[in-house]
């Protein structure tokens, strides 16, 4: 799954990193706790969070995250976006809340067809 796929699925607005949306997303991690992100996030993971402070950018940079999606329509300060540009970390924002975002990504999981099939059938 590419970042632009995620953008469509989550109906997200790109705040920065338009030129990086071709990157592959291998996993996603939804969390509002930096401590947990530091411990569990693996490289090329997409972060979903309602935290908008500078730590989310630092954490994404330190953990080699592929990008950050702010849920619930949240938007970071301009200084956070500026820092994110320096690190080449795409930032997106979506009106959808965490649970909805996770559900949409799960149903559209392109990595494991069985998950898509099963989840889609179960949902319908």
């Amino acid at each position: 799954m590419k970042l632009f796929d995620v953008q469509k699925i989550l109906e997200a607005e790109v705040l920065c990193g338009d030129d990086l949306l071709h990157k592959d997303v291998h996993n996603w991690f939804a969390c509002d706790l930096i401590n947990e992100m530091l411990l569990y996030v693996t490289p090329d993971t997409l972060l979903l969070t309602s935290l908008t402070n500078i730590h989310i950018v630092h954490t994404a940079q330190v953990m080699d995250a592929i990008g950050v999606v702010f849920v619930g329509g949240k938007r970071p300060a301009e200084s956070v976006i500026t820092n994110s540009k320096l690190y080449n970390i795409p930032l997106l924002t979506t009106k959808h809340l965490t649970f909805e975002c996770c559900g949409r990504l799960f149903l559209n999981n392109l990595h494991d067809p069985t998950v898509v099939k099963d989840a889609t059938n179960a949902y319908r």
Binding site: L33, I34, N35, M37, L38, L51
Partner: peptide
Amino acid sequence: EMGFGAGMGLFN
């Protein structure tokens, strides 16, 4: 509120 303080710092 910043996303820290969950009692995981020293544990991590």
